[in-house]
Design a protein around this nucleic acid. Sequence first.
DNA 1: TATGAATGAGCCTTCATTCAT
DNA 2: AATGAATGAAGGCTCATTCAT
Lengths: 200, 200, 200, 200
Amino acid sequence: MKQKAELRRQQIIKAAFEAVADKGYEAVTLQDIAEYADVSKGVSNYYFKNKEDVLAHLLIQITERIYEKEKTAVEMESSAQAMLHAYIDSVFVGPLENERFFKVYLDFLAQATRNERYREINARFYSNCASICTLILNRGLDEGTYTVTDVEEASKTIRSLIDGFMIQWLMTGDRDQHSTYKKLSLSAITSYLTSRTASQ
Amino acid sequence: MKQKAELRRQQIIKAAFEAVADKGYEAVTLQDIAEYADVSKGVSNYYFKNKEDVLAHLLIQITERIYEKEKTAVEMESSAQAMLHAYIDSVFVGPLENERFFKVYLDFLAQATRNERYREINARFYSNCASICTLILNRGLDEGTYTVTDVEEASKTIRSLIDGFMIQWLMTGDRDQHSTYKKLSLSAITSYLTSRTASQ
Amino acid sequence: MKQKAELRRQQIIKAAFEAVADKGYEAVTLQDIAEYADVSKGVSNYYFKNKEDVLAHLLIQITERIYEKEKTAVEMESSAQAMLHAYIDSVFVGPLENERFFKVYLDFLAQATRNERYREINARFYSNCASICTLILNRGLDEGTYTVTDVEEASKTIRSLIDGFMIQWLMTGDRDQHSTYKKLSLSAITSYLTSRTASQ
Amino acid sequence: MKQKAELRRQQIIKAAFEAVADKGYEAVTLQDIAEYADVSKGVSNYYFKNKEDVLAHLLIQITERIYEKEKTAVEMESSAQAMLHAYIDSVFVGPLENERFFKVYLDFLAQATRNERYREINARFYSNCASICTLILNRGLDEGTYTVTDVEEASKTIRSLIDGFMIQWLMTGDRDQHSTYKKLSLSAITSYLTSRTASQ
DNA sequence: TATGAATGAGCCTTCATTCAT
DNA sequence: AATGAATGAAGGCTCATTCAT
């Protein structure tokens, strides 16, 4: 019984992702979601409190899935740089997938500035990302590969570079530049992590 | 005559900014904008083609104003680090102002993924920001302060760090952390620009 | 299920007829139609694509219903003059009904000058009316009662006289003159159909 | 002083005709009329009580002008058939002019079913048309060319045929058929006027 | 459990009209 | 005499939500 309900909820969340990716956070309607899920209009309201509830669950889901994937990928490697590569490969997985995911994620970020619940979900995502970065950084520090002194600070910097470059790539409107921005990310992060400067 | 019309348009754009900052890009109504501008409902449509036209002009305006301010601030300095400081001071001008501006800007970024016009306006902004960074970077390279090899790449990296940290700060929901993220930005950028690594 | 939807559509079309008859084609609002149908504001848009779609269906319906009634009436008679009488009786059925129908029809004619879709629907109506006239005329020619040589031409002439007199009657604003104009129609048509002139 | 005002009124009425011919009675706005007249938006309201007042004056004007033209044309002829030809030539003056005039006139007829003032203006027009027909008919009766017994009735029949055929022509949407419907009109009217039947 | 008909609030937009200049 | 800025009512339409089935 419960299982079937959970399946339905998954089906709706999945459809919501596709719908939001195609139409945008605000433009999407419950009707759209129902059509993508191939169910009737009333179903969303049956399994979720309201539209925002569907979308909040969508945000939870995509951020968790992304985290799981990234974590798994990173944990398969042993050296810091291999881990970093694996991480960046996981993040910049490909133009089509990134476009869909990041459009949706950016929509949520914009909403989150005015929506406490979304902000909390994102905080958990940030925290998860930081845990991955911490893994990599600690390895790099152990190895002596990395020079950064503050792990938390470095985590945030990595996150900034990833988000910043991903947004810039999206704004080009040119899928072909995906690999360029991926390389840019990797290079900037590596450069940052391995810098030896007077200021540090 | 013409001047008065331009004033009215400014009044509406200003009101639109306040309204969007408070309510969000999609949530804002022409009614809202009218109320913020203390004019009647029909005025926006009198001075602009439609709602999107108001908002597009808003995006143009805020990106241009920001650019002018940053440019002016940077041009008043002579050393690379002083210029960078001035730049970061201009960007992270203060929690209240940053919060209002960046909420609105993030809204536009999210819209821009599906709106060519917004993407173009943002491209001009990016290009302007890059010109400021280029100023700083060239000075730093002349001075020998900076070690980066590719100015364009470095510009993008600086932009990424600024956008990325600003978003992270917004997501904390905590205005008091503004100075923390500002310092983080400056430190990460400086570190990146002055790094001496094997990879470079 | 489907049947109930069709009933609702009928209900809305009927209400649209009453509303247009009372208020006029352009003056009528979806709100009006909803009120006449005793349903909520959104129903018209649920069952029809938009306002014009409701009205186009209304035009189709009234022209088809009128045609059916006229056809049935004419087919029950055997002599040409009896058929013509039946036809005119069907057309000039009574002041109240004629007033409602013809006000609406005249509204549509005026719209049709700028609306291809309405013109097409009216073309079908014209064609149907012509088929009735052809029935009558062929009978009259067989009988030797009528003298006209060109059936198609005569059909159009009959249609002209009916429309022309109906408009003139409407323009009097005097319901009591209905029978006068009806007689005028019959007399003019009969006279035309049975004329023996040098020119023919 | 008075003269200049009258000129302005004429200018506006002329513009209103063009605007209504192009856009339709209901679609036309005071802004449209102002633009066609190359004056400012407020002028219509300065010289006329309101929008309907402009349009009522337009109806008066076009019906009077048409009447004058037709009357003049008919009065230049001496035989009944020549007068009738002149009349029909005046009415079916050409596809372009007829289309513009009759679209507008049909719009007014549709409005007139719900507008007493328009109905009165049209009644005057009808009466004027009847006076022309009476001229022709009396001449034809004097000559012995026409056989009709009731002049008033015949006038109305002529009007019916003209309006009816003009509408049918408009509904074809085919300007090239103008001459066909013109001939049809003339032939039907002649046939009616010269018929010798048992019923008369 | 699931449907989808129905509701009605609320949005953007248009436009006649007013009125200060 | 003329302008055109400003108003605000009103309409078409969309859509989240409710609810009877």
